[in-house]
Design a protein around this nucleic acid. Structure first.
Length: 261
DNA sequence: ATGGTAGTTTCACTA
């Protein structure tokens, strides 16, 4: 089974790219974040025409929004409202015996100070809650995957310059500590790093603001796939579709691909 | 320290 996670930054605008992704990589299941569309106007018909007949969505106007598109039947799990907010950042399904959770962690604003920046405080609280939620979820003893835009680049090689990003939201020590705790709380395996050495530079996001994103290559790995321990031995491959950042009218994030036997 | 781009039923906010 091939699973893809992708922050599309507007699903309606990115339909031609979704078409390209599905034609090129033939994923079985696609987790989307930042769909930016209410459920009534989600482009279901277009996506069904690409072969994804099973669609679960949770969207709102303008911001956030998650979706799971699948060739295989889905059973919807209970939505979780992180930080008590109904802001469409989580959607869970069961697919082929695996619980799959699609997550969009708050970006956290610019200033990495929770006392002066409410958005950063929200992000820290959200990641703390991910630890509790992970422990609870894993207690059920089911095979599980948590994936999405986690908005944290935990490793030094997950950013273009560890030193220059220490005070930049997404790579600050406090975020990375909490991120590590959440991962440990669920005994989650980093499915992509299982196939790419921790020292090797690896990014899934490049800012729109760079003059030449590819030449500067100032990326960060913000998108992740975590697997429960029982699935570790069944992971058969992973890759990040860097090319997609160069497609026409791209998202600033690219698809992350994981294969499971 | 600044400003750079993209998306949204937009003229402000989020990323």
């Amino acid at each position: 089974m091939r699973i893809v996670t992708w922050n599309v930054n507007s699903v309606r605008l990115r339909l031609p790219l979704l078409e390209k992704l599905t034609a090129q990589k033939a994923p079985d299941v696609i987790c989307l974040q930042e769909t930016k569309v209410v459920d009534d106007t989600f482009p279901k018909t277009d996506i069904e025409a690409m072969g994804y007949k099973h669609i679960e969505i949770r969207g709102m106007k303008s911001y956030n929004g998650v979706a799971v598109l699948s060739r295989l039947p889905l059973t919807r799990l209970e939505d979780h409202a992180f930080c008590g907010r109904d802001d469409c950042r989580h959607l869970g399904v069961t697919v082929d015996g695996i619980d799959l959770h699609c997550l969009y962690v708050p970006a956290g604003g610019d200033e990495p100070n929770p006392d002066t920046n409410d958005k950063f405080a929200h992000k820290l609280q959200f990641i703390d809650e991910m630890a509790h939620w992970s422990a609870q979820t894993r207690k059920q003893g089911r095979s599980a995957i948590v994936t999405g835009d986690f908005n944290v680049a935990p490793l030094e090689a997950d950013v273009w310059s560890h030193k220059q990003l220490l005070k930049v939201v997404s790579h600050t020590p406090i975020e990375v500590e909490k991120f590590d705790r959440a991962q440990a709380a669920g005994q989650w395996t980093d499915a992509v790093r299982r196939f790419v050495p921790a020292e090797e530079k690896l990014y899934s996001w490049w800012s729109y603001r760079a003059k030449d994103w590819a030449a500067a290559d100032r990326g960060r790995r913000l998108d992740h796939v975590w697997a429960s321990p029982d699935l570790e031995g069944r992971l058969s491959g992973a890759s990040i579709l860097r090319d997609a950042r160069g497609w026409e009218r791209p998202s600033d994030h690219v698809p992350v691909i994981v294969d499971i036997d």
